[in-house]
Structures are given as structure tokens and as C-alpha cells.
Design a protein around this nucleic acid. Structure first.
Lengths: 378, 378
DNA sequence: GATATTAAACTCTGTTGTCGAGCAAAAACA
DNA sequence: TGTTTTTGCTCGACAACAGAGTTTAATATC
């Protein structure tokens, strides 16, 4: 077990890349004496290292705290509905290596086969860094309970145990892609500094995360943030989840197709992007209207969640970024109308996610790091 | 500032009334040596005292840790739409004195006048305990932001600053009644032991709280838990909050009256109780049906929140207790149907609150205590 | 009734973490 | 060249804590 101060210092280094040692000491709230001892211990433990800082004024020059070149790493793996990607991430969030496939051919229903291949590639990465990789975060577009994938309807995977990708990993964090993206936005993206941040991600499904002071509220079994299954939608649409009236299916690609009287698309995300592209053209009046309807539904739902949860800020990711860009007026109008009246004068801002498609991997790395802290040796 | 161990011991004593000293030491995770020193210090500081415990087997008899007879107290004040009540609460949650009025005549719109009287009575209580009262929690049926009452439509109060009840109180916690009731259920009621507990309280309005490991998620400005303004209701009903389709107005007394074609009741809570009483009689078929509709709406909404938040347990308070008792079948059916299918085999239980009308006061006391911990002297 | 057993409390000691004061170092400024 | 400013290092005082051994007060057993 690591001392609490040491743990705090590591967190400061992680959250503020290239902090100077003096600033870090101030942030942790210790004197220079204690900082000397702490930094020495963490350097000896090969967790951090120092390099001279840019001289920035008068006074004795300080050093910059950075990850140790032999320090611990985590593996962040993210699956989307059509590809996978792995990153090796060091303290501070920098990526030191990556691997992955753009095309995960025939992934549908073949969870086990794909996993064997991915496992192999991950093992190779781990071998390459000889024991330095100390934990793994895995992001999947689906329902994840108790670190086990319950269902990923877009992949046709069900009951897959993703912990088998690295059987005896010291720490494993399996989570929903939207949840991880929310975590990443709070720590390295649009929601940095928000004490209570709400993230909403529209993708094949709709999900999100509620992050309070950097901690994701994952719920009792890890299913917190499944906002897509709140009944904000119309009762006549049945959700793949088995309930009716879910919010998610009212604003994804399928919803756009219904609004445009198109046949149900096979890849709703790609379809939605096509509709968005068409809406941006001269001739896309019908598409524009459909996007506005969907954006309004997004805004209305966000308002309900803001009323209930009271966040500082709402970030939207995935297709939400496009909806926001293409129909911000509709979204905002619906958002404001749905808020409790007295909130309308100073509503929590609704902003686009900054990490975009990198959110889920980054979040997986963050969560793996978060679980690794308590295990790091002195 | 108090030592962390000392603070933990106090919390243990607070959360487990009549713990023995030996058990407390085990719960804090310290040896008997450290316990001796800690207990001595806290006794000297007049925070706790000891009395011999019932001998319960062989071995040296231990003592029971209890609040010190001269120890600190908090004031818990709770307003309802027709009365107010104050309790003086000691460490551990026991009430040592109380005051209040059943009838708060003509309270509507007269926030300032009532407050002058309440303030007077509270000052008298504080004088009676000569400096021992160290903090205050105030529960109000209305929207509370930044410890200030924003609006209480049932009382006609608006912009009232409840901190003036005790201007320079060392700690003040002003909050919504449903939020406080949720806090109380998590710590002394039906949700004890639930890591993530969701509380829903139907009263004049609908509110609640999300409690994670004993901590209430109050949101950015303290408005977290206003679940009544999530748009689960029909769009044709306008909520007093200014939005449309809010959940609260779809299952309160007004909603029952609409279902029964009665004129809009002045006191929706009393009206709802009359309908519930009628529903329990032979001749109350129409009332029974109305209650079932409302109970189903409650169940459906709870399902949506469970999908999104993933709690261990849901407790319902206020009129919700009666809905649950009178139409548990309708509520459960709607609840299960609204859950994601894979959850239906093992859904989080929906239970009645245990503290009933005592919830808000108890929660106000708990929150005041929670804010008092860091200020207690060594 | 005498002795053993058990659980708890007390005492003492060595260790560790922390804070602060004073001093040294390395730069910019005058 | 000296002064100022910021930072890092060393050391001593102090409090918190763990652990071992001792004492105390009850029950259990003979």
C-alpha cells in the first residue's frame, strides 16, 4: 500500500502533465521538505522521474515531474461496432504504443473468435513492455454489468467475459463506451473542472455517464449511465432492450430513417452520418427537418436529466456532436423549454465533447489508472 | 481540525448507536491501544462518554460508547405545507427536545412572517441548550439552490433565505424535504446497507435523492434529486415549474382528480389520502382504478430511473408508500415492464420508506451532522 | 471455592510520517 | 557584484500508530 500523500502526488502528476515539482507540492498541500522526500521515494520506486524545467523567471529553477521511463503502464482497449483499438498508456495519459484493426470483419455474433485474436495481439503488446503493463481497461458498445459484457446488440455479442482478454490482470475495468467517454471528458476533455458533469453519447445506442468530482457513478453493478433506456420516447417504439418508449431509439439512425420514411438501416451510425451530410447540402430540406426533430428530442431529454441531476455542465458525444453542430437552435430551444423555468436564466451549458472518437479508449485508460492507484507499491 | 481516526470513530458512534468500545475499535480498524487513547481524547473533549455494557459472555466486560451529556447537538427543522417542526438531535440521532406547530396558519405567501416566529422559537431552543447546539439543518418542500429556498409553490414562498433562521450558525444545511428523506432512509431507514440507493418521495410535489455510500448527490447547486421534473408525463399537463410533461404532476393529487373528473383540489395531499381511503372501501372501484393508474406511472418512471442509475434498492416515501400498499401489483407490473429485459430476473427491490413522515427532519439532522464532522475540535 | 480461560483494556516502546525552521542553491535583477 | 526571489535540502520536534507484553474482570470448569 502506498502512502496517501504519495498517492495524491501521483494523481496530481497524472492529472497535470508537466507540472513542476514546486507546483505539485503546492497542489498536494505539502511543504518543500515533504516534497523532497516524496519525490525521492517515488523516483526510487520507478514511478516518476524528473527533468529540468524551462526557466520561467527568477528564483531557483525547479524540475518537471514526468512518468518514469520504466514506470507502470495500462492497456486501454476499445471496441466499436466495426473495429477495435488498443493503446498502451503511461502516467499522465500519453499513449506510448497502439495496435488495432480498422475492420473487424464479420464480428457480428462472433464474440469468441474475435476475442481470441485480440487476446493474442494484447499478449504481444504486454510482452513487448515486459511486465510494465499493470492493468487493463476495456470499452465496449453494450451493457456491462459486474465487469462482464451482458449484451452488445450491435455486435451480437452476449454474455462475453472480457476479463479473459488478460485472465489474471492485476486490475481490470470493463465498461460501456459511453460511460468511459464521459469519464474521459471529465478528466481530459470538455468537462474538466466541472464538479458534477453529465455526458450523453449518441452512437449505435445512447449512453452516458454522471461524473462527480472525477469519479464516475457506475451504479450498483456498473450499469449506471444507461440514459438511453429512460422512457423519454414514444411508447410505440420497442427498444432492443425489451422495454418501450426508450429515449435512445428515438434519436438514433433508426429514428432518422423512420422520420424520413426510409427502410430501417443496417448500420444506423453510418446512415445517420449520411443523413447529416445530406442535411448540410442545398437539397437536404427533409433531412434538415429530421435532424432538427431528433436534436430537439435530445435537447428535451437533456433538460429532464438536468432538472433531475443538476450538473454543472453537459457534454454530448458521438452523433450528438453532429446534432449539436447541425441543429443547435432546435436543440437549445427544446433544452431551455424543458428546464424548470427559474433555471432558464442560467442553464448549465451543453457543449460538444472534445475527445470525439478517442473518448472511449481514453476513458478506459483513465479507469484502469484509477483502479491501479491503490495497488502501486511505495 | 480533528484527527482522521477520531473523526472515523465519531462517525462509527453516530451510525451505530450503542456500539461497544471493542466493536467500535474493530470497525475503525485500530488496535485496543489506539482505542484507549482515542476514547480518552474524545471523552476529554466532551464528545462521547462511556457506560458499562451488558456483560455478554466471558472475558473482560467492555463499555458502550454514547454521546456525551454535554456534547454537541444539532437543530433539525422541517417545514411541510401545513406545519413545521424542530428537533434537537444528539450524536447517534436521538432526539433530545422538540418544538413545532401542527398548524402554520395562513402560511401561504407569508414566508417572512412565519420565519420570524420560527426563528424566535429556535432561538429559545438554542438558549435552552446554552451553546451546545452547533449546527442546523432545514428541510423545506420546495426547490433549494445554494442553501437558499428558490421556490416552494405549495407554500407560496419564493426567494426566502432560510439561513436567516440562525444567522451565524457554524454549519447550515438547507435542503429539499425529499432529498433529506432519502438521506435519512439510507442511514437509518429502509436503504441502510445499499451502496447506491434511490429514494422517490411523492408529496405535494415529487422529489427524491440519489445516495451513494451514505453521501447524497446534491448536484452542482443542491438541486439534485428533483426527479419530479423529468418528462415522464403527458405533454398536455403544464407543471408549476414551467416545463411540460413533468413526471410529478402525473401522479400527485391533481393527477388523481383529473382521472376521477373531480375539480382540482386545493390540498392535493389531503385529497389523495381521501381517494386512497375511498379506494380501500367496497364502493371505491373508480378510485381504485385511478390509484392503479397512478401507481403504474410511478412504477414506470422508477423503472426508467433504475435503468439509468442502476441502484441497489429503491425506496418510496410519502404518498408513494400508500400507492405501493394499495396497488403494488400495478406498480410492480409497470416497473418490471419498464426495466431492460435482462434486469427483470433480478430487479432492485422497490420498498416502502421506513421513516415515513419523520424522514425529512431526520435527514436534516443527518446532513447537519455530516457538515459538522470536520469542524469538531480534538 | 480454586483455577483456567477468555476478551478486553492498559502501558510502554520503537517506528513512521509530518511540519517547520533554518540554510543552501540557482537563477534574474539592479 | 550584490540583492532578491524561488526553490530544494537537512535536521529536529512532535504526534500518530502498531505491536508486544501486562493487567483486569468476567465466565467456565473442575
Amino acid at each position: 500500500m502506498i502512502g496517501t500523500r504519495a498517492s495524491e502526488l501521483l494523481r496530481v502528476v497524472h492529472e497535470n502533465p508537466d507540472v513542476t515539482r514546486a507546483d505539485a507540492a503546492r497542489l498536494v498541500g505539502i511543504g518543500t521538505g515533504a516534497a523532497t522526500e516524496l519525490v525521492a521515494r517515488l523516483t526510487a520506486a520507478e514511478l516518476i522521474s524528473e527533468r529540468p524545467a524551462e526557466p520561467s523567471g527568477r528564483g531557483r529553477p525547479t524540475t518537471v515531474l514526468q512518468p518514469h521511463p520504466k514506470g507502470p503502464l495500462v492497456l486501454a482497449v476499445a471496441f466499436t461496432h466495426e473495429s477495435w483499438r488498443a493503446e498502451v498508456v503511461q502516467l499522465g495519459g500519453a499513449v506510448v504504443a497502439c495496435d488495432g484493426d480498422e475492420e473487424m470483419a464479420h464480428a457480428y455474433g462472433e464474440g469468441d473468435r474475435i476475442l481470441v485474436e485480440v487476446k493474442d495481439r494484447l499478449t504481444r503488446l504486454r510482452r513487448r513492455f515486459r511486465g510494465r503493463i499493470r492493468g487493463m481497461g476495456v470499452s465496449v458498445p453494450g451493457l456491462v454489468a459486474m465487469d462482464r459484457l451482458v449484451e452488445a446488440s450491435t455486435l451480437g455479442w452476449s454474455g462475453v467475459n472480457l476479463a479473459t482478454l488478460w485472465p489474471n490482470a492485476p486490475v481490470t475495468a470493463v465498461g460501456n463506451d459511453a460511460t468511459f467517454a464521459g469519464a474521459a471528458e471529465s478528466r481530459r476533455g470538455a468537462a474538466v473542472g466541472a464538479a458534477v458533469a453529465l455526458h450523453i453519447r449518441v452512437d449505435a445506442g445512447l449512453g452516458g455517464a454522471l461524473v462527480e468530482n472525477g469519479r464516475v457513478l457506475t451504479g450498483a453493478v456498473g450499469l449506471g449511465g444507461e440514459f438511453g433506456h429512460i422512457p423519454f420516447g414514444a411508447d410505440d417504439v420497442e427498444c432492443p432492450c425489451g422495454a418501450r418508449g426508450c429515449w435512445g431509439p428515438s434519436l438514433d439512425g433508426h429514428a432518422l430513417a423512420r422520420l424520413l420514411d426510409h427502410p430501417d438501416p443496417k448500420d444506423p451510425v453510418a446512415y445517420a452520418r449520411r443523413v447529416l451530410a445530406a442535411a448540410a447540402t442545398e437539397a437536404g430540406e427533409r433531412e434538415r427537418q429530421a435532424v432538427e426533430v431528433v436534436a430537439a428530442r435530445l435537447g428535451r431529454g437533456i433538460a429532464g436529466l438536468v432538472n433531475a441531476i443538476d450538473p454543472d455542465l453537459v457534454s454530448v458525444g458521438g452523433l450528438g456532436v453532429d446534432y449539436l453542430a447541425a441543429a443547435s437552435r432546435s436543440l437549445d430551444d427544446a433544452y431551455l423549454a424543458g428546464l424548470m423555468a427559474f433555471r432558464r436564466s442560467d442553464p448549465p451549458p451543453v457543449v460538444a465533447a472534445e475527445l470525439l472518437e478517442g473518448g472511449p479508449v481514453a476513458g478506459a485508460a483513465e479507469e484502469a489508472w484509477a483502479r491501479l492507484w491503490p495497488l502501486l507499491p511505495t
